[in-house]
Design a protein around this nucleic acid. Structure first.
Length: 418
RNA sequence: GUGGGCGUAGCUCAGUUGGUUAGAGCGCCAGGUUGUGGUCCUGGAGGUCGGGGGUUCGAGACCCCUCGUCCACCCCA
């Protein structure tokens, strides 16, 4: 056993999986940049207070924060998600609106790890600030849906709901408190504890005994403002116009306190464990204000890399890209010829790799095979003497001698034929 | 954070009621083939059996603790 291992909930992403991650982010960048979103790289840690604005009953903040005091005595925290940092950046820089950005990178939450749940986990996402338009809500949702489709995913389920305006949310919370309190004896003890903290979240319980009580709970749409209802209806119509299928789930609450009005969540029907939630988001009108900025509406989503890739595995799509160099150079003389030839090839835009430590030709050929190069260039004593190179096509095994000075042209010719 | 399953070579796993020097397949290295990979054959390297303590003449197997991982709850991506 090695003396050191990765810390719990963290891991090394090695090839070929690492290539898949990069491809994932490339596809995402392509999808959202085609819709006018610009790349933003917020810092990985911020003042703790920035994240506290996510809400005092948000467990991500109250229980799972990686916070510490730095050498200057500042109380900082690793970001548990990126929306707060983006909103802080908005307040700090005051870009013109609508401000549409996308991000990709790791977040940190101190949780007990499981498959699809890590302490350092990657998300990609977008945020759009400064527009109240319900068509923007629909655009954001449509972008996420398109991205899943771009990955080749088919079994993705979209749930949407509205939480009403800030006041509505509080009012509904009181209604739920009254309802659940009346049925307290039928709730699990866990739900009773949740009820005391945040009545909305009782709706999220997956425990069987709670389901009957939850099913009878009053729906939020009955207690939200007329304008919030109109906004939601407009979002739904806009989704219909794009032929995006969804389910209205009036139990969908989501754990981050800042959500207002539109909320949505994507789950994979191909996954069956606890990690079926592969993405989600919503409006957070009020968050910018909480961070000291002017009243500014905002909406966005975040998608989990790991879970989405698990869904890809389950649906057998978006496989890891294979990487291969074009040329593998075998040198049985002294290694110096391979050294210089690789350099020359690379300078001419041809990818090339080689073996080291002057191993046997058999071993070097084996490396050539593993490299997946389509052409091997072999240099032995005969070649050095005659200023030639043996060019071998790895697929067919066909090989022939070329003049050393013609190597670039011959290699290009061989690669084109392939 | 609560409860449960599982930790044996790089990987996937065997390992009989505790009993000599802990095995296999794949992978890796070398040789067969002193100029040729993908097939085949032969050989080799690689393990303080997650870690610590205990029971025993004897522990990979049993007990306790601990760490890690997986599952459920919780939470969420």
């Amino acid at each position: 056993m090695p003396e050191f291992k990765t810390s719990p909930g963290t891991r090394d992403i090695l090839a070929p999986h690492s290539g898949r991650w990069r491809a994932f982010q490339d596809v995402f960048a392509h999808t959202v940049e085609a819709a006018g979103y610009n790349f933003i790289i917020p810092p990985m840690f911020e003042d703790l207070d920035v994240f506290l604005r996510l809400g005092e009953t948000t467990e991500v903040v109250t229980k799972e924060m990686y916070d510490f005091h730095d050498k200057g005595g500042r109380h900082v925290a690793l970001r548990p998600e990126q929306t707060a940092g983006v909103c802080r950046a908005y307040v700090e820089h005051r870009p013109i609106t609508p401000w549409k950005v996308w991000y990709a990178g790791p977040n940190f939450r101190y949780e007990k790890p499981q498959q699809g749940r890590y302490r350092q986990f990657d998300q990609v996402g977008v945020e759009a600030l400064g527009a109240d338009d319900p068509l923007l809500d629909a655009e954001v949702i449509a972008l996420a849906a398109k991205f899943y489709a771009d990955l080749g995913l088919k079994k993705v389920h979209l749930s949407v709901n509205t939480l009403g305006d800030a006041g509505d949310r509080e009012q509904y919370s009181q209604i739920l408190l009254k309802y659940f309190s009346a049925h307290e004896k039928d709730l699990t003890s866990e739900s009773r504890a949740t009820l005391a903290r945040n009545p909305l979240r009782v709706l999220d319980s997956k425990r069987e005994p709670d389901q009957k009580v939850i099913a009878g709970a009053p729906a939020i749409r009955e207690s939200i403002s007329e304008s919030a209802n109109q906004h939601f209806d407009a979002v739904l119509r806009a989704l219909d116009a794009l032929n995006i299928s969804y389910e209205i789930n009036n139990r969908l609450v989501r754990g981050l306190d800042y959500y207002r009005r539109t909320t949505f969540e994507f789950t994979s029907l191909a996954l069956d464990a606890a990690h079926t939630a592969i993405g989600g988001g919503g409006r957070y009108d009020g968050l910018v204000e909480a961070l000291g900025g002017p009243a500014t509406p905002g909406i966005g989503f975040a998608l989990g890399l790991d879970r989405t890739l698990l869904a890809c595995d389950a649906e057998n799509t978006f496989v890891a890209p294979t990487t291969a160099v074009q040329i593998f150079v075998v040198d049985t003389v002294d290694g110096g010829h391979a050294h210089e030839l690789c350099h020359l090839l690379r300078q001419n835009g041809i990818s090339a790799d080689r073996a080291y430590d002057l191993r046997s030709i058999k071993a070097q050929m084996k490396s050539a095979d593993r490299s997946a190069a389509s052409v091997a260039l072999i240099i032995g004593s005969d070649e050095v003497q005659n200023s030639t190179i043996m060019l071998r096509k790895m697929g067919s095994g066909e090989q022939y001698s070329i003049a050393h000075k013609d190597v670039i042209g011959e290699v290009l010719k061989a690669l084109n034929v392939k």
